[in-house]
């Protein structure tokens, strides 16, 4: 599903003395089936941006076009029900949205809201739970009795159960340990491939951006500062530094190596790329075996 922002602006508490600008003249395009990352400092408008994707926020100026649906400042809440189903939004620490008595009921909640029969909703919920790696033995448990990582998975299943065409992830791995983070990111990539989803990921993890994103949007003060492939975005370390953005971890090591005097023709973004450029610059001995 294609998504287009046309000169979108959003003002919080508009028409009041406390008005603050959330988005400023945003024009963007997310291609159907692409994996997009949105990066930027805390408070740069990343979360405000993604809340426009399913009409939780309505632009104060401009248009958001999601598939066939056009959202303008005049769009009424009632017109958004269909859009909400098509765009699944996983909030930061999504486990805080769990509320039902059982895991299964909680995951079936969204499909029921969107008009599935209880039997259909249950079937979809079971499927979604399997997808995130939650087995049938946990279905009848209280969500609050699960571990933190399991609760996170259940909450994500609750969004996947809407069978959305666009998946929006707002820092979905915050608070997880390294292995949990990696598993979660691989899961999203797998779901994206299998269901041909358009993914929009808000993150501070530059290594994930390098690994997964096709397109990166850098936000600053409510405005997209730069849009491009990870390679284009991370090509200029000085520019990143000037805008308080981190490099991927290899980038940080490369910066150190460059300072020491090593030469790199392009910025290596992964360990194999780094090794390929570094090895020729070093003394080597024959490897035995």
């Amino acid at each position: 599903m294609d998504i287009t922002f046309k000169q979108v602006s959003y003002t919080y508490q508009a028409n009041s003395p406390m008005a603050t600008q959330g988005l400023r003249d945003v024009t963007l395009h997310f291609a159907s089936g692409s994996y997009n990352a949105i990066i930027g400092q805390t408070g740069s408008g990343k979360s405000t941006l993604v809340q426009h994707l399913n009409g939780l926020l309505i632009p104060t100026a401009g248009q958001v076009i999601v598939g066939q649906q056009v959202i303008t400042p005049l769009t009424k809440n009632k017109a958004l029900h269909d859009l909400r189903r098509q765009v699944g939004l996983v909030f930061q620490f999504p486990e805080s949205q769990l509320f039902e008595e059982t895991v299964l009921k909680d995951v079936a909640f969204a499909p029921k809201n969107f008009g599935k029969t209880p039997a259909e909703a249950t079937a979809i919920a079971q499927q979604a739970l399997r997808l995130v790696g939650i087995g049938p033995e946990l279905e009848e448990k209280m969500p609050f009795d699960l571990s933190g990582g399991q609760m996170r998975r259940v909450a994500i299943a609750g969004v996947l159960a809407m069978e959305p065409e666009v998946l929006v992830l707002d820092e979905p791995t915050a608070g997880l340990d390294p292995v949990g983070r990696e598993e979660m990111m691989r899961l999203f990539a797998q779901i994206q491939r299998e269901r041909h989803l358009t993914v929009i990921l808000v993150t501070h993890q530059m290594d994930d951006v390098v690994r997964y994103a096709d397109q990166v949007v850098v936000m600053e003060q409510g405005h997209p500062l730069k849009v491009g492939s990870p390679r284009e975005i991370f090509a200029d370390p000085l520019w990143l530094q000037a805008h308080n953005l981190e490099l991927p971890s290899t980038g940080q090591l490369v910066a150190r190596l460059r300072q020491q005097g090593f030469k790199f023709t392009s910025l290596p973004l992964t360990v194999p790329e780094l090794l390929a450029q570094l090895t020729p610059q070093l003394r080597r001995v024959p490897v035995d075996g």
């Binding site: 809340q51 939004l89 609750g158 809407m162």
Partner: peptide, 14 residues
């Protein structure tokens, strides 16, 4: 935050 999360799951509070 929770209201937004549930609205995204199809709840209509209004």
């Amino acid at each position: 935050k929770i209201m937004n999360a549930q609205r995204a799951r199809g709840v209509d509070f209004n």
